[in-house]
Design a protein around this nucleic acid. Structure first.
Lengths: 220, 220
DNA sequence: GTCTATACATGGATAGAC
DNA sequence: GTCTATCCATGTATAGAC
């Protein structure tokens, strides 16, 4: 071992990359409140001063990590999302994505950043951008699913994608304080997806009824 | 003015109460990261050492504030929730609740605590308890709404109430970083509620179809 | 690019006077 | 119960040697 791999550091790569990785790990494992130049540098196995050399400030490092982390994780889940063929699938995939992200220590990363953005306004933009990456994926899936249903053209897909994404973040945060409750919540959403699938498959007669009803109640 | 009311302090009441109020205000306005014995005490217009005299630690003060804050705010919205008569109503009321809480500076309070619970495990229990107060209200409303629909007995109401509550928290956090996106999300949920209302009113024939379909797809 | 050393600020917490 | 004074830990940031 010529390379040193002493403590909890060194995933390989440049110092800059190690710091970004350590930032994400720290947020995921200990929450954004525990992110500091010292803790992150220690996790990366580098000197504290390098945070300021590479990023200028802790906040900017956090912003950079947010962007990179979201991009990487969305990429990792894209394939699974492409395979979604029904609303029931969507909830199943969501559950799987959640489990994987949790296993990877990424659960509630966006939640932490979302919460942190209130104290550090500079985080708002990169956090929104990070969430937007997920929104874009969800939007694509929803658009594909709804295309051949009576909901096509009736439901605001971009809005719904944002609602789904934000809700998912809320559920991730919730899980940290009440695992059983979160599990119950997930299950109930599966049931709801099944209900919507049922509606989808009721056929053209009820489709028309749904359409008519929707025209009557929606204003915008 | 015999009483002093110099800075941003003194809503009246005992020092203990002032500290609790100041804690909630600080969390709501600046995020949990800015909560410290010094900042809260300053906002309350009292001495910093009194935090430790009355609560023992900052964390315990936060926990106490969480419990009290959730209780008070749920109580303030209970009447509106009682008046909910349809799913469409529910989303409208949710929107109104959200707007009011935002105006009162309470937006994302639970989100902040949820996020903070990851760094301060002692916050998990009181935060879960605070959220549970909302869950209980939502659960009551949902149970009432679903009672007379084909969904009665099919959908897990406690689970759905948790999903709705957690999602709402996610939406509140989201709004802080992307107001327009959150608005779109809310609107799309209204549309979804309208869709469900439509299904509700399709009558007994489709009710049976929905029931049959649900029996086929749900395992638990 | 990376390290040591250091300054300066903020925050948790306690002791003791009033 | 409340205040002042104080200690100590942690964290941001910079200067300067290597």
């Amino acid at each position: 071992m010529t390379r040193r791999e002493d403590a909890a550091e060194a995933t390989g790569g440049s110092t800059r990359e190690r710091l970004l990785g350590a930032t994400l790990r720290t947020v995921a494992e200990h929450g954004i409140a525990k992110v500091s130049a010292r803790t992150v540098a220690a996790a990366a196995g580098v000197n504290q001063a390098l945070v300021f050399y590479h990023f200028g400030s802790v906040e900017e490092m956090l912003a950079a990590a947010c962007e990179q982390g979201a991009r990487e994780r969305v990429g990792r889940q894209r394939e699974a999302l492409e395979g979604v063929g029904s609303l029931t699938d969507l909830v199943h995939v969501a559950r799987s994505v959640h489990a994987q992200e949790r296993a990877a220590g990424n659960v509630a990363l966006l939640g932490q950043l979302l919460a942190g953005a209130q104290s550090h306004p500079a985080l708002a933009a990169p956090t929104a951008a990070g969430l937007e990456l997920w929104v874009a994926e969800v939007e694509r899936v929803l658009a594909r699913l709804l295309e051949k249903t009576p909901l096509h053209g009736v439901v605001d897909v971009p809005g719904l994608a944002r609602a789904v994404s934000a809700s998912f973040v809320g559920l991730e945060l919730y899980e940290a304080v009440d695992e059983k409750g979160a599990e119950a919540a997930m299950s109930s959403l599966e049931q709801l997806a099944n209900l919507l699938s049922a509606v989808e498959e009721l056929g053209p007669i009820t489709d028309r009824a749904v359409r008519r009803r929707l025209r009557r109640t929606t204003s915008g």
